[in-house]
Write a protein that binds this DNA or RNA. Structure first.
Ligand SMILES: [Mn+2]
Ligand SMILES: [Mn+2]
Ligand SMILES: [Zn+2]
Ligand SMILES: [Zn+2]
Lengths: 148, 148
DNA sequence: TCTTAAATAATAATGATTATCTTTTATTTG
DNA sequence: CAAATAAAAGATAATCATTATTATTTAAGA
């Protein structure tokens, strides 16, 4: 692991301060969840979590904080057509995901072969490529077992 | 090309009839657009196009028809977070796309390397994979020129 | 401590898509 | 061909995640 939760949190806080943002208790709580979660939480999940310590927090606060952190490049947003957005503050740079259509689990994937793939698409289409969104849908190991 | 517009249209009509759906003039017009378009049109684009011959058509009709055709597996839906959905009735099975962030052009990609990639994700995550959504974002050749 | 710009919280607005309901029509049957 | 009917069209309302607005509160620097 290049970045554990602590380092990610430090990075986020540093970036916010460096850009003149204030560190509020609510903001810090959101940052902590984003930096340590590997499960790609939704706004609702984050909201419910923060609510435990800040019972009056508004959903809008969660949305706005995520927007700020996203614009600073410190969280990756995964938007879906039906389900609501999911966030990765642990690995904020674009990477492939495996998504379980049963339990909605989202698992990171990091494969060298992606570079070759991207290069081939570049050659095939003539595009100058600088971003990607790669989702594989299927059944996670747990849900495969439960289907037996 | 395995399927030209004509064959795709025949396939779609056959599938609809085979499943007890009626062939209305409006539905046929939508099918024609979906089967021949290689530009991944939006609902709005389809609506505007059909409107030329059927001035009273409703957006709801376009939406409902696309839903039917999608459920029959004859059109691929590409949903986005900000922009509205785009549809591919020419190549209805999942395949990668190159998307221009400038002019919103969407170009098909079909590469053998995808099979290797999928296999590697399978091994890496333990998922049983049966679908994917792969988008590469960047600048198309035209928009690269216009930036010079 | 005082000042002030930024953040929070509550609430309204947005916009693409879906649902509902009435009218119209494609297809089947006699 | 005419009648019957289930499906489709068209109009409009509802949905729901997200964004915008606005009044109130607060973090952080002087
Ligand atoms: Mn991730
Ligand atoms: Mn396509
Ligand atoms: Zn699962
Ligand atoms: Zn372009």
């Amino acid at each position: 692991m290049k970045n554990d939760g602590k380092n990610r949190l430090e990075t986020m806080i540093g970036k916010l301060k460096g850009n003149g943002y204030k560190i509020t208790p609510q903001r810090l709580a959101i940052l902590k969840i984003l930096s340590t979660s590997i499960g790609h939480p939704s706004v609702e999940k984050i909201y419910e979590q923060v609510k435990k310590n800040f019972p009056t927090i508004s959903r809008a606060t969660v949305y706005k904080n995520i927007l700020v952190i996203k614009d600073l490049g410190e969280v990756l947003e995964l938007a879906f057509s039906n389900d609501s957005n999911r966030y990765d503050g642990h690995l904020p740079h674009p990477h492939p995901h495996a998504i379980c259509t049963e339990c909605k689990k989202i698992v990171d994937s990091e494969l060298e072969i992606l570079k070759d793939f991207t290069q081939k698409v570049r050659e095939e289409t003539g595009f100058r490529i600088y971003d990607h969104r790669i989702d594989f849908f299927g059944l996670c190991p747990d849900c495969q077992k439960n289907k037996e």
